Simulated scan of single mutants.
Amino acid sequence: MHKTQKLIYIALLVAQGVILGLVENMIPSPFAFAPGAKLGLANLITIIAIFTMPKRDSFRLVWMRLILTTLLGGTISTFLYSMSGSMLSYFGMLLVKSLGPKRVSIIGISAAGGFLHNVGQLLVASWIAQSWTVMLYLPVMSLFGILAGITIGIAGNYLLVHVQALKKFQLNYELEKKNKKRSGGYQK
Rank of each mutant, 00 (worst) to 15 (best):
M93D: 10
A165M: 14
F169M: 12
Y173N: 12
A15G: 14
L147Y: 08
T70S: 09
S126C: 07
A42C: 08
N25L: 05
Y81K: 06
R56Y: 00
L159I: 04
T151G: 06
I152R: 07
P54C: 10
V62Y: 13
L7T: 07
A34G: 00
Q5M: 12
A37N: 07
A165V: 10
A148G: 08
K55F: 11
G73E: 05
S183W: 07
N179Q: 14
F79E: 05
M93G: 00
T151L: 07
I19A: 12
N43W: 02
P35C: 09
T70Y: 11
Y173R: 06
M53I: 01
K55Y: 13
I8H: 01
A125K: 02
L72S: 06
G21P: 08
P35Y: 01
I19H: 01
K168L: 09
N25Q: 13
S105T: 15
L143N: 01
N118Y: 06
I154F: 15
I67M: 11
I67Q: 00
Q5A: 07
V119H: 09
E24L: 08
M53D: 02
P54R: 11
F91V: 02
H162I: 00
L136T: 13
A148C: 08
A42H: 08
S98H: 12
K102F: 07
D57T: 04
V23Y: 12
I48L: 13
T46H: 04
H2Y: 10
A49H: 07
S82Q: 11
L171S: 12
E24A: 04
I19Y: 03
G40M: 08
K97G: 02
A111Y: 00
I48H: 07
T4S: 14
S131C: 03
L95G: 10
S84D: 04
F144R: 00
M135W: 12
S77W: 09
L22R: 15
I67K: 12
G100K: 06
A125H: 07
L20C: 05
G74M: 07
H2D: 15
F79Q: 09
L22G: 07
R60W: 15
P54I: 01
T75R: 12
L44E: 05
A112S: 15
L20D: 03
V104Y: 06
T75C: 11
D57V: 05
G114T: 05
L39H: 03
M87L: 15
I47T: 11
L95R: 11
A165G: 02
S29E: 13
V140D: 09
G185H: 14
K38M: 05
K6C: 02
M141L: 14
L72T: 03
I76S: 14
L138W: 10
F169R: 13
F79G: 03
K181R: 14
L39G: 00
T69W: 03
G145E: 06
L166S: 02
A155I: 15
V134A: 14
V163A: 09
V140K: 06
Y137D: 06
V140L: 15
I8F: 10
I48W: 06
K168C: 04
L7N: 05
R56N: 01
I27Y: 09
I107G: 00
P101L: 05
V23Q: 04
I128Q: 12
G17F: 10
T151E: 00
L72P: 00
G85R: 05
L39E: 00
E24D: 04
I150D: 05
K38G: 01
